[in-house]
């Protein structure tokens, strides 16, 4: 085959960026024990807010900053429901996605048909935001595994009752983690509108938030795993498109199923290892998806 692997890799870096950001954010939220299915809603919010700010100020980086704030802000709705009102996380996340898609479609009208300012490229002719995404991977790994705050966050996610008994504020930890997840999803969404398309149209994230959720599972809840997952999911798309461009016939539907099947297999292997060898750690956080209420 005449395909240059380096060119595929460069395509992949850019293609994987939105899902990498969103998945890293969701990783932190899930490590704190919160399953937020509203990633798509937060991404689209970031896509619009970021685009509006980039268009208004002419500065794409300011756009990304605003996108992060907007993503975090809308995640507070989810946090209020699940942490304050103790509503079910799955239902609240789905509601957030619906609400985010509707809200942005409504407020996005004035920004239709206008263009975002051009994104300056960074070192090696690669976009600065792509670099930022790559840098976030070791940072989040370090935060989760080496920092004290990360230890507390994981403790809250593994066993919120124990964390509470030790005097940690479960609710505050989770709200913060979800807000971080929202900020990252917002940046991921803004990458689509500011760096990929340079325009705003409603529903433009087109399901990337759902892929991010799959990537977190694939990652076995680790930051390097998220990078691998984003590259796998982005890579399958890029590779099949690249092969097609080179004139090779590929079974697109079957190939696009593959990453999801791989995710299930990874999940099963990790769960099985944990179940049969009784090793600590690995697999899903112990309190994932469960709400916490302190009885005092």
């Amino acid at each position: 085959m005449m395909i240059d692997p380096l060119s595929v890799f460069l395509l992949l870096l850019s293609a994987a960026t939105p899902i990498l950001f969103a998945a890293l954010g969701e990783l932190v939220a899930e490590r704190a024990g919160v399953l937020n299915l509203g990633v798509e809603g937060m991404m689209i919010t970031g896509a619009l807010a970021g685009f509006a700010a980039a268009h208004g100020t002419g500065n794409p980086f300011l756009g990304f900053l605003v996108a992060a704030v907007a993503g975090a802000a809308i995640s507070l709705l989810f946090s209020a429901l699940t942490q304050l009102f103790l509503a079910n996380q799955v239902a609240s996340g789905l509601a957030l996605t619906l609400f985010g898609l509707g809200l942005t479609a409504m407020f996005g009208k004035p920004f239709e048909g206008v263009k975002a300012p051009a994104m300056p490229t960074g070192p090696l002719r690669i976009n600065w935001i792509v670099w930022l995404g790559l840098i976030m991977v070791p940072l989040i790994w370090w935060f989760l595994n080496r920092s004290r705050a990360g230890l507390i966050l994981r403790g809250v996610g593994e066993n919120h009752d124990a964390a509470h008994a030790l005097g940690y504020d479960v609710r505050l930890t989770r709200v913060t983690a979800v807000a971080f997840g929202g900020a990252m999803a917002g940046v991921g969404g803004a990458y689509v509108s500011i760096a990929s398309v340079l325009q705003w149209t409603e529903g433009m994230t087109a399901g990337a938030g759902w892929i991010a959720l799959a990537i977190v599972v694939f990652s076995n809840w680790t930051a390097p795993g998220v990078l691998a997952g984003a590259w796998l999911f982005g890579g399958v798309t890029v590779l099949q498109l690249r092969l097609q461009a080179a004139g090779v016939q590929v079974p697109v539907q079957l190939l696009s199923m593959a990453p999801y099947l791989a995710t299930i297999i990874v999940l099963v292997l990790i769960s099985a290892r944990q179940k049969f060898s009784r090793r600590a750690g690995g697999a899903a956080p112990g309190s994932l998806g469960q709400n916490f209420h302190a009885l005092r």
Binding site: L35, V90, I264, L267, V268, S271, A272, K275, L288
Partner: peptide
Amino acid sequence: WFGASEILV
């Protein structure tokens, strides 16, 4: 069989 989370699968 394996303890895999049914939510995610």
